[in-house]
């Protein structure tokens, strides 16, 4: 089997990520940074399913991170730490919210779709801000991470790292299969020519809505991981600017490419880290960088790896 440049780079990248904890045994800071990058990669890959493949520019995707994280937080608040309860509930709520939000927003197009996804997500943000019981603005501290009947201990940084790594690989694999399936053909077709798709006999709305729910559930998973990882949840996690950051990770990495959003999330976090070390005004550098990428690097980082193949 021959491998193209993209395949080689991504394999090396994943091997590096897999071996990192061994190289950085006594560097919890970097383990943490990469854990976070992987979690946001999962969110970015799920957003790419909408943005890159389905041309659904959702500006409220961080809401599912909030839902996942709040699920862990609220359960922990009531001293229910069992992950076998927390996680299925978190994913189910993500699915239901995505179904409702998708059913409403997918009736609109273009700028209206963007604005409605943003507005719906902000509703949940303000809900979080207004509920005093769950800390309002300040959020909740998650003092105990999800427990899995002793099978795996998320309090152990390295074990947690590999749990996240596993879910990242799983997410990439699932999205890869999805986008190349019959379902994926329809979703991609909707990006390319929706009028034609309908004239062929596809009821496009149902397929887009399904994609919207799948993306919401995967992003909800990222939220479950993030809540556990940060030991904390607050409304800021689902603020629209967070959704904007996710969009940027996808665009930076490469819209509609399988691994692009992972690279985008890593580069985004590393740059944020490096620049904020240099100066507290790091956003003055970061902002123009983002603009330059959008203007001059069509196809994002992924395009540097050669002409895109069909995954």
């Amino acid at each position: 089997m021959t491998m193209n440049r993209r395949g080689v780079v991504m394999t090396l990248f994943l091997i590096t990520v897999a071996l990192l904890p061994i190289a950085l045994v006594d560097q919890p800071f970097y383990i943490g940074l990469f854990s976070r990058a992987m979690i946001l990669s999962i969110a970015a890959v799920s957003l790419n399913l909408l943005l890159g493949y389905g041309n659904m520019i959702s500006f409220g995707h961080a809401v599912y991170i909030g839902i996942g994280a709040y699920t862990v937080g609220i359960f922990a608040y009531y001293e229910i730490y069992d992950g076998f309860i927390q996680w299925p509930v978190g994913l189910a709520i993500s699915a239901v919210v995505a179904l409702i939000f998708g059913a409403i927003s997918l009736r609109t197009r273009g700028v209206y779709f963007i604005m409605i996804t943003l507005a719906l997500a902000q509703m949940l943000y303000f809900l979080g801000v207004s509920i005093d019981e769950y800390g309002a603005d300040d959020g909740l501290v998650i003092d105990v991470r999800s427990e899995f009947a002793g099978l795996i201990d998320l309090e152990e940084g390295i074990a947690f790292y590999y749990v996240i790594f596993f879910f990242l690989l799983l997410t990439i694999f699932i999205v890869h299969r999805l986008t190349n399936s019959r379902f994926g053909v329809v979703v991609r077709g909707a990006k390319s020519n929706e009028v034609r798709l309908r004239a062929l006999g596809f009821s496009v709305y149902q397929y887009k809505l399904t994609a919207f729910v799948i993306a919401g559930v995967i992003c909800g998973l990222a939220g479950l991981l993030l809540g556990n990882f940060t030991n904390f949840v607050n409304p800021d996690m689902m603020h629209w600017t967070r959704s904007g950051e996710l969009i940027f990770m996808v665009v930076l990495g490469g819209l509609g490419s399988l691994f692009g959003p992972v690279l985008g999330a890593f580069v985004f976090l590393l740059l944020e880290e490096i620049l904020s070390d240099l100066t507290i005004h790091w956003q003055i550098i970061f902002g123009p960088f983002l603009i330059a990428v959008v203007l001059f690097m069509r196809g994002g980082i992924d395009s540097l790896l050669g002409k895109s193949t069909d995954d």
Partner: peptide, 11 residues
């Protein structure tokens, strides 16, 4: 087309 797994291009 709610078939999510098999590769369509090789069907």
């Amino acid at each position: 087309s709610f078939r999510f797994w098999r590769e369509a291009r090789r069907d």
